[in-house]
Design a protein around this nucleic acid. Structure first.
Lengths: 315, 315
DNA sequence: TCGAAGTGATAGTCTGAGGCTATGGCTCTC
DNA sequence: GAGAGCCATAGCCTCAGACTATCACTTCGA
């Protein structure tokens, strides 16, 4: 009963099973797999016979997956996922820094980091093709878990703990207010206590930066403004009105305050900050290229914001 | 980049890779896979080319796995394991109670439970072929984790916690002593305190029954005998000499004390006991047949020893 | 030192798995 | 009731992967 005994089906047949299930029909699946519909029919019929399970109910309007079929297709997916891991690890070992990696980035990092980093990556890892996408932490973590993404750039957070990660750098928070706001009168580092009693504008739910800023507000006795912003740019607009202050990640200041409409003050050391990491599914075959990407980004972080608070964390 | 895109290798090629790695040579692997050696050579060469990784170093005395090859073969194993799961789940859904399950049993249960249970299983699950093996808890758990076994009959224990399991029944401990031993003077249930100051013979290290009995000794102030037995039969022999007492699982009494050489007394309720379970790898495709096997065994347990202490536990 | 026994690689042939096109039968929809 | 869409069937063709026979090489042991 060794692992290398023959099985009565092929990887390709499993791919066909999943394709038909995903696309809901033989013709569509055939087209997606680049074969003719009769070939698809024949292969599906064959695998159904081989495993003695009717996976699909054929109807005039396409196919339905049977109850037994759903379980079978679940396992077929697992096999194909393992096969993809095999391909990945093989590519890593033929040339670890080539191929494609899919990396997601949270919205409060993406527009500020990517422009800088993209060209550096192209220069230092010329054979590595990085596909970027932007989403909030929850969605990114889910996609990494499901292997829809190879990695994600996130702020360190309980939701990230089950993933492996490499440090990218720390990003301190800064205090931003309209130029005529009382808190803008003084320059130089602010102590966190100046927030006491202030009205602070924050991002809407779902942004991890909101949670981090909210924690700081709670600790200092600031109160949250009624209005919630959908992005940092909106936040800057709101505060520009003069009726409150906000917190910004240092990384975003150069872009969001490019016209200098706000006064920006750092916090006294140790400044509140978020730790940015590149995280991936534990045991992912893409560990090596992701590690390399993290190294490039780390060296590319704006010098003032870079340098993790302590030694670079790794798991 | 969907899951159903074609891959440049076949399941069979992965089987060949693993076979060559396991058996250390092309000819042996070819024989094990039932093909001619040139076919094996050709397929290995092809997959090595497809993934652009040299997996094996060919030498005059067989092959060695390269560093990159080891990682690749690791993933190939994962794919084949997933494929086996696929086969399993398919068989479950074509006929859940047919096929083969491999079940390990601990030594302090195996010889007493199996004779009774084997015929009941044959009668109630005629299409299910059960392959039994005997080993200690640690080894069994490792084999279940590695999918070398589908399930194992064990006493509930921290080492079993990460597995799913179905209850089989509780097995109370009994006190056994030579017929002329002071503790054999009285009949009827003994309180655990009678062990105070007694010399108790126990099994050697590695038996979970040793740990359970030792815990009871510690709680009651009994002391362990110098000599450690390799099995319950030896334990009975030792105690027969009259210089000490021992604990036996109720399950073993009928067999080990069949000649009545020892006086056997139950403990007062609630008697110390072990909970026997059939455990399997979480998410195993063999859940359904294993569950059925557990049910058969549960109904077959000697009536006096059966009946779990509380409701049957399941996860 | 040389042959025997082991290793994997190569050459040439053959068969069948799985691709294709063309077409049929069925069931919804208009 | 015609048409559009679905999957199944029939018949053909090609190439992946099996086979046998043999070679080249290394490592023993007489």
């Amino acid at each position: 009963m060794a692992l290398w005994n023959t099985v009565p089906y092929s990887l390709r047949q499993l791919q066909y099973l999943v394709a038909v299930a995903d696309l809901g029909g033989f013709r569509r699946a055939a087209a997606a797999c680049g074969v003719a519909q009769p070939s698809m029919s024949a292969q599906i019929a064959q695998v159904e016979q081989a495993i003695a399970v009717q996976v699909f109910e054929r109807g005039a309007r396409g196919v339905r997956v049977t109850a037994a079929g759903a379980a079978v297709i679940d396992r077929a997916r697992a096999v194909l996922l393992a096969a993809r891991d095999f391909s990945d690890i093989a590519r890593q070992h033929s040339d670890p820094l080539s191929g494609t990696v899919r990396i997601g980035v949270i919205p409060t990092v993406c527009p500020y980091l990517l422009p800088e980093v993209a060209s550096a990556l192209k220069a230092q890892l010329p054979n590595l093709h990085v596909v970027w996408s932007e989403d909030k932490t929850r969605a990114l973590v889910d996609q990494v878990d499901a292997a829809a993404l190879d990695g994600a750039i996130l702020a360190l957070d309980p939701r990230v703990e089950h993933l492996e990660h490499a440090a990218i750098g720390d990003d301190p928070f800064v205090l931003a207010a309209a130029r005529d706001h009382p808190l803008a009168k003084r320059t130089g580092p602010a102590s966190a206590e100046v927030l006491q009693g202030e009205t602070v504008f924050l991002l809407e739910d779902g942004h991890c930066f909101r949670d981090q800023a909210l924690a700081l507000c709670g600790a200092t006795g600031a109160k949250e403004a009624e209005l919630k912003a959908t992005g940092l740019a909106t936040l800057v607009q709101m505060v520009g009105g003069g009726s409150g202050v906000t917190l910004l990640p240092r990384l975003a200041v150069a872009v969001e305050n490019r016209r200098g409409q706000l006064a920006v003050r750092p916090f006294k050391s140790p400044a509140p900050r978020r730790s940015l990491v590149l995280a991936w599914r534990r045991g992912s075959a893409m560990k090596r290229p992701l590690d390399a990407v993290a190294r490039v980004i780390r060296n590319q972080m704006p010098a003032s914001a870079a340098r993790p608070h302590r030694a670079s964390k790794r798991r």
